[in-house]
Write a protein that binds this DNA or RNA. Structure first.
Lengths: 168, 168
DNA sequence: ATTGCAATGTTATATTATTGCGTTTGTGTG
DNA sequence: CACACAAACGCAATAATATAACATTGCAAT
């Protein structure tokens, strides 16, 4: 019943417990710091930058410094619990559980929102093409700059893919 | 015949003249600074970081500062002459001329080399899938972490894509 | 000549990320 | 328990990447 130790919602705590179990199964430990960082990312809808996260974690742990955050993030990314969006220097929690193919992240150029598309077929095709060219995929994230449905609805724009897909 | 003004090889100068013509056709100008930055990138086999580029451009222009380089890079990326590899904070010259679909960049996790795969079909498929999910692609570069053929030959590793492609 | 505009010069600073090293904590072993 | 070992953490400093803000220059149109 110590609310300062785990200041997250019940749903978030459930998620964190699952994550902890996953780590344990892989022989790693979701320590309190790592758990807090993951919880903060889980609460955030849109991904966070490292120093935003640092500011938030400081509310929980006054002595936190950049390495505190970066170490936790490195761990969480290694564990597949968090993805880094390089284009935005941003970190997002993975809401698809463990998956064995790269995540496809649509990054909206207008509003900055990031959403993970779940498309094993496309990723498989990508892997095949890469392999045909002599490469072996070793890849957790594929980032695609795009206009998200909301922004598209607000103000459509003509893009090259119209040519490719036969759109009007 | 002023070799200090254009300190590049004949082949490089030919490339730069083409680039200049392309810019002109688009109503933009490849100024001397931009030309030098593009030439340095063209000479570099593996892409360069902004501050590496700054060090090199200082050999030509002692008063160059970070904005000098970043402005030139912004321009060159806008013109499609240069691609930014976000994962490496690196800039690579585009060796495929103007293309109307996103470049597919294979980034080797072992040696760091970047190579651009030319695969309009795959990019078209990507655009279709994105559109089916409500997104409109707005994307110059797609980065894929992988092991390049050379590194793979040196020391093969088993990866998830073996499962997808039915490899041994 | 003056105005407008794109490009550049210059200084400073913001943002993102890491290194290095000492301390603490957890875990297994004799 | 005492010890060794490794992983995690605390902390200070700094490296690496990128932009802001404003002054200046050069050139073209009028």
């Amino acid at each position: 019943m110590n609310s300062t130790a785990t200041p997250f919602s019940a749903a978030c705590n459930a998620f964190l417990d699952l994550a902890r179990a996953g780590c344990k199964a892989r022989g790693a430990q979701l320590t309190p710091i790592r758990r807090d960082v993951l919880g903060l990312l889980h609460n955030a809808e849109n991904g966070l930058k490292a120093y935003d996260l640092l500011a938030r974690i400081k509310a929980l742990r006054a002595n936190a410094t950049p390495p505190t955050v970066y170490r936790a993030l490195d761990f969480l990314v290694e564990q597949g619990l968090v993805h880094k969006i390089e284009r935005l220097n941003q970190f997002v929690v993975c809401r698809h559980g463990a998956h064995t193919f790269p995540g496809l992240f649509m990054v909206c150029r207008r509003c900055g929102k990031v959403s993970e598309l779940h498309d094993p077929d496309l990723m498989g095709e990508l892997a095949r093409r890469a392999q045909a060219a002599g490469y072996q995929l070793d890849c957790q994230e594929v980032e695609i700059a795009s206009i998200c449905p909301d922004c598209l609805h607000a103000s459509p724009a003509q893009g090259f893919e119209q040519m490719l897909t036969g759109g009007a």
